[in-house]
Amino acid sequence: MAINWFKYSAPTNFYGLAGKLIPFFAWPAAVLFVIGLYIGFFVAPTDAVQSEAYRIIFLHVPTSILSMFIYLIMAGYAALGLIFNTRLSSMMAQALAPTGALFAFISLWTGALWGKPMWGAWWVWDARLTSELILLFLYLGFIALQASIEDPRRADRASALLAIVGSVNVPIIYFSVKWWNTLHQGSTIKFTGTSMHIAMQEAMFAMLVACWLYSIAVSLARVRSIILERERNTQWVNELKEVRS
């Protein structure tokens, strides 16, 4: 029985599959989120240096990692869409962008709120925070370009090219910001220096996987709406039971 890999690359089949998959990502995400919060707040010990404020890292670190990870996945889908002309890949890239941007925003927000008690200022031109801010600008550029072009085909391909150029530039930006930061300030105290208690690592990991599953669930849900919007004139969309009822 040859597996037809490309069966689900057609929007018609993928729409149904995504619909079935969402609960399998959404519920585990919620469960892991609760577990992560429980370990993070009740099991993990109070930190010697900053007592309770450090618990923000259970949100700051996963969202930062994911904001970068989603950008690369988005650029990957965009490249696929550009090279193989598969509309679904471009739709997936478009669906991932808002979630990635929100993760970047949360990472900046929690970074600021964590920086205030730790470094005494709401915004510190720390290498990581600065690079995160630039990553948010890249996301906003992608979304703005996608939104400002009417013709979906050109919008997909143009924003795909931008995502590829962006992903090539991200390491360069990260390196030059780190260079710029150490040049002026010397690296600020690193949290990872202190060995992390096992409970902290468990909480961090649980939150990371929770956020990851959450982003998949939300993106799948959003891509389904994009499919509905874009395939509105097709026969199979109008046959759908949701439309009929």
Partner: peptide
């Protein structure tokens, strides 16, 4: 109370 850091911790988790 989060040992005095309530605003920061709940501020970040709340907004998230």
């Amino acid at each position: 109370a989060m040992n005095g850091y309530a605003f920061y911790v709940w501020g970040s988790y709340g907004v998230a």
